[in-house]
């Protein structure tokens, strides 16, 4: 995983998505990583994120809920054609802002965390390694999809996650940076999804071993049954 430090916040490119951690304990950070990864994989097993964005996002949230991340509110909207141009960054930040609005209602908190999300995208955009990674991840996809998750831990221990995602029928041209890619609304359909989730540590703890076990059982089965004698060349 690619990790970049930004003003004390941890930004991670995980399975092609951006995760931003604000003040999370290591334990909760691991919980987010594994829940997000498991949920992304589960959603991608059923839907293509670039062409079935809404179904993918709903499947992702449903799996996250099973992992202990309980959705407070959720939206998935088509971006209005009145906007002249879209950019990946602007849509992501807008989606995160919507998710945070569902979760907190506190204007100063929303403003602060939206700023964190915006800075995180800038940080990644300014990191040649992370941009190269994202460009490689998205180079072969049809259309565009990306999600960002901002996770915060309050002083009282409460953990909130705001997830924003975009889906567009447009793809960036070769050799351009995905994060600063802009496109016109007149030639494409673009959607943003937003959700706020609260973390229920107790629920996660009850499924954590199952998550590991599910992967673990498959691993044992593979190790015991898969052939390991190389084929002979003709």
């Amino acid at each position: 995983m690619s990790e970049i430090q930004n003003a004390g916040n941890n930004v991670q490119v995980n399975n092609g998505d951006l995760l931003v951690f604000v003040g999370l304990s290591e334990e909760n950070s691991d919980a987010l990583k594994y829940s997000h990864l498991f949920s992304s994989l589960a959603a991608s097993a059923e839907y293509f994120p670039t062409t079935e964005g809404q179904q993918w996002f709903q499947a992702y949230l449903k799996t996250m809920e099973s992992c202990g991340w309980l959705p407070v509110k959720f939206s998935y909207v088509k971006e209005a054609a009145s906007a002249q141009n879209f950019s990946v960054k602007n849509l992501l930040v807008k989606a995160v802002k919507a998710g945070l609005g569902y979760a907190t209602g506190g204007a100063s908190m929303v403003s602060s965390l939206v700023s964190v999300a915006s800075d995180a995208v800038d940080t990644v955009a300014q990191s040649p390694e992370a941009v190269a990674l994202l460009d490689r991840l998205n180079a072969e996809k049809e259309g565009t999809s990306l999600s960002i998750a901002v996770c915060t831990q309050q002083a009282n221990g409460e953990v909130m996650l705001s997830v924003g995602c975009i889906q567009s029928s447009e793809s960036p041209p070769d050799k351009s940076s995905f994060l600063v890619f802009e496109w016109s609304s007149s030639h494409s359909d673009s959607y943003t999804g937003a959700a706020a989730l609260t973390f229920h540590r107790g629920l996660y703890d009850t499924v954590k071993s199952t998550l590991i076990q599910r992967v673990g059982d498959k691993s044992k089965n593979d190790v015991l049954t898969k052939p390991i004698e190389p084929k002979k060349r003709p």
Partner: peptide, 16 residues
Amino acid sequence: DRHTGLGWVVSATGER
């Protein structure tokens, strides 16, 4: 596929 099956958390892949 075998990597994933053994417990490798693959965070990024690319092919050109």
